[in-house]
Computed example of a mutant assay.
Amino acid sequence: MDVLEALSQALFCTSLGPDLSSSVDEIRSCVLHQLGSDLDGSCARHVAGAAGTDAAGHDRRMAWCRQMIRLAFYSQATPRSA
């Protein structure tokens, strides 16, 4: 599993979602907390279970998670001069 996928799965297992307006800092914080607290691998089981019970919903949420992870962890936004 690559880093993008691991971070996306961690976000998938949080209470954040596309219907909430979450800041980049909130996304980072929740993802890092999830990674640090998932010592038994329950997040991966949750993601797999969601794929089995609602494949379309899983795919939509995972697409949103990947998009948010790219924004929160991979974006190289440069501040603009005023």
Rank of each mutant, 00 (worst) to 15 (best):
M1H: 01
M1W: 00
D2Q: 06
L4M: 04
L4V: 04
E5I: 03
A6T: 10
A6D: 07
A6M: 05
L7G: 01
A10P: 00
A10L: 06
F12E: 04
F12L: 09
C13W: 08
C13A: 09
C13Y: 05
C13D: 02
C13E: 01
T14D: 00
S15D: 14
S15W: 02
S15Q: 08
S15K: 13
L16S: 02
P18M: 10
P18F: 10
P18Q: 15
L20C: 11
L20K: 13
S21F: 14
S22Q: 06
S22G: 13
S23N: 12
V24Q: 13
V24R: 15
V24L: 14
D25G: 13
E26N: 11
E26Y: 03
I27L: 12
I27H: 07
I27E: 00
I27Y: 04
C30D: 12
C30H: 14
C30A: 15
V31D: 08
V31F: 01
L32M: 14
H33K: 11
H33D: 15
Q34P: 05
Q34C: 07
G36A: 14
G36F: 08
S37F: 01
D38M: 03
D38T: 01
L39M: 06
D40N: 14
D40T: 10
D40E: 11
G41C: 07
C43P: 08
A44D: 08
A44I: 06
R45T: 08
R45M: 08
H46D: 10
V47Q: 04
V47G: 04
V47Y: 01
A50K: 07
A51F: 02
G52A: 13
D54P: 02
A55N: 10
A55E: 15
A55K: 08
H58M: 04
H58D: 00
H58L: 03
R60K: 10
R60H: 05
R60Q: 15
R61K: 15
M62V: 02
M62S: 03
W64C: 00
W64V: 00
W64T: 02
W64N: 01
C65H: 02
C65D: 00
C65A: 05
R66N: 06
R66D: 06
Q67E: 07
M68T: 04
I69K: 00
R70P: 00
R70L: 09
L71P: 00
L71C: 05
L71A: 09
L71M: 11
A72G: 08
A72D: 10
F73M: 05
S75F: 06
S75M: 09
S75Q: 12
A77L: 14
A77D: 14
A77E: 15
T78G: 03
T78R: 11
T78M: 12
P79S: 13
P79C: 08
P79F: 11
P79D: 10
R80K: 13
S81L: 15
S81W: 14
A82K: 15
